[in-house]
Design a protein around this nucleic acid. Structure first.
Lengths: 115, 115
DNA sequence: AAGCGTTATGTATGGCTGTGCATAACGGAA
DNA sequence: TTCCGTTATGCACAGCCATACATAACGCTT
């Protein structure tokens, strides 16, 4: 049997099944935190601004607490920054993700590697 | 913050990134094992025969070991059964999946529940 | 007032994927 | 030999999603 590689995806929904945070939005929030603007985050991640903006809208719809503060105009043209809740969720997701990745590696070694 | 629900997906690729086994194909193999035919498995899972057959073809392309024996004709019209390797992989995947699901629940309680 | 960079939003286009439909081969049963 | 249920396979079509393009609002700077 050919060597097998394990992959996983992880995401959080609200109770209506609307997506709140997965790997894509996670990377997006991280990039926004780092860059301070959505446009800069998109350039950094090489994704379209249109999609990123739509993703943020979906988060706002799925959640009742705003994770971001968005402002138009000003000296830099505009800014997007994370709220305290945003940072909190981001950190929680990162820990969540890391724990599961570890578990996946362990489970891979235990069940799949030997095949 | 609204209550968050954790979801995950798990799958195995070969080294070329070709998909070998994920939740869909896992359910398919299980249903084939139970029913003894691909057509019956599709009816049971309510998916199209066309897609299921395509998925099996992808497995065969991605792997070098056949997981299935497929026969046309005969008293039942035809049969599809798992090979020993097929059963082995199926079982390994189930254990793999179960371990990670447990870990996900634990990680959820630790990191996400409190939000 | 004009310019710049960003947020904000609609619309169209292209690709991917699942589905539906059609057809053929196969081999035991009646 | 005819029939039936299954495996096998091509092809057209619909739906979804990311991308691209277009345009407007906004507020500091010069």
């Amino acid at each position: 049997m050919k060597k097998l590689v394990a992959n996983f995806r992880l995401w959080l929904d609200n109770r209506n099944g609307q997506s709140v945070l997965g790997d894509g939005k996670w990377q997006l929030l991280k990039a926004i935190e780092k860059k301070g603007s959505l446009a800069a985050a998109c350039r950094h991640l090489k994704i379209s601004y249109r999609k990123a903006w739509g993703d943020l809208e979906k988060i706002q719809i799925a959640l009742d607490v705003p994770l971001l503060e968005q402002h138009r105009g000003g000296s830099k043209g505009g800014v997007t920054i994370l709220t305290a809740k945003g940072k909190e969720l981001l950190e929680a997701y990162e820990n969540f993700h890391r724990d599961i990745e570890k578990a996946a590696q362990k489970a891979y070694a235990k069940h799949i590697k030997k095949l």
